[in-house]
Design a binder for these strands. Structure first.
Lengths: 198, 198
DNA sequence: TGCTTCTATTGGAAATCTCCAATAAAGGAA
DNA sequence: TTCCTTTATTGGAGATTTCCAATAGAAGCA
């Protein structure tokens, strides 16, 4: 369970309540691991059951008591072990490609329209990612060490690269359909290498 | 539920049993929608309940009877409606990036090692995708119409572009870490546009 | 002969996640 | 004054998917 590791990672920086963690997630890694609030709470109690985190109840007069979680030594060990692990082979699952696969049933203009819609959705997403970066660059009050912030930026960078690649594919594909390429038979071309402009 | 639409799409080409569908999935869209066998069976009976497919039992003397499913008019209508829909915003969920995010806790060489491992995993995946294309190009006995085959190739092409982008990001990132870039502070650069070689 | 693979379907358990609702008090906006 | 948002947690329902096991005859291999 990956949420477990993500939470452990944040607890490694300091103690948090479920509520606080939700905000931390939303402000840092939402772009590659969105977390549902109730899922965070459930995972916290699981971590506690496993002895990877400990919990203290802090009473408050005006609000519900806070359950503050802290990482344990066992938790820290497991976190580091996980980070060092060879990354898993990830299963690709893209509903959009099911649509593309069967879009051959539609007339060209309609297929192109769907690809255009996807393209503008991605453009909006890129805008959004750039926003995330700006908010993160301001440091959110507490300053993270430069190195950790650098790695955070790398994940944003990854998102931007992938989105850009997707956009480029869409534009190329629309071109290919416009040219009526399938009449001459299909071809899977080698994907282009990516390099920085200028 | 997306598997529902994928199955409906294949049933639109002709009648299939669950067993046959499993093989069709494995030979065509596994690279973006792997399907579990028992999930296919469950989804088929759901489609039948909803009146989107009909089922005939064909007895066989030497083997268990086959349940042959056919798409209904209602099913065809819904399939076409779905294909034309504006593509959904897809939720990104990448465990590997959680690892990258926290890899800042490791010494540079160890972080680089993880990125290298990911890179070779992706290279293997690309090999595999190229295999898929070769098998598909032979047409598998029955020939699909050129246009439909073209759209199928497009989905493979998409996979290749995305994998290549991921690989390029990894290589660039390894470079950036090697240069010790984070010492001077982080930067999210604009991703490069893609162009064909030569 | 024994083992594995292929054909063909079914059912249960469990993991992971989303969505929704309930509780409760404070503070700010309209 | 009424309504919405924030803080803070809990619990249940359901969706989707994976994994595993059972059944069973036939065919091919060593």
């Amino acid at each position: 369970m990956h949420l477990e590791h993500a939470i452990l990672g944040f607890l490694n920086y300091g103690p948090f309540t479920g509520y606080e963690l939700k905000r931390v997630f939303d402000r840092s890694i939402r772009h590659f691991w969105p977390a549902d609030q109730s899922q965070i709470y459930k995972t916290l109690s699981k971590l506690s059951d496993k002895g990877l985190a400990s919990m203290d109840i802090v009473h408050q007069d005006d609000r519900p008591s806070r359950k503050v979680y802290q990482i344990t030594d066992a938790g820290r060990t497991q976190l580091m072990e996980w980070i060092r692990r060879t990354p898993e082979v990830e299963v690709v699952r893209e509903p959009f490609l099911i649509q593309v696969f069967f879009a051959g049933l539609l007339p060209d203009e309609e297929a192109i329209q769907i690809l255009e819609e996807k393209a503008s959705e991605i453009r909006a997403y890129i805008e959004n990612l750039n926003e995330v970066t700006k908010v993160g660059a301001q440091g959110d009050g507490q300053k993270a060490p430069k190195k950790l912030q650098f790695y955070w930026f790398l994940t944003v960078d990854h998102g931007l690269w992938m989105m850009q690649a997707s956009l480029d594919w869409l534009e190329e594909t629309i071109e290919r359909i416009r040219r009526g390429e399938y009449v001459d038979g299909p071809a899977v071309l080698d994907p282009p290498r990516r390099r920085r402009d200028g």
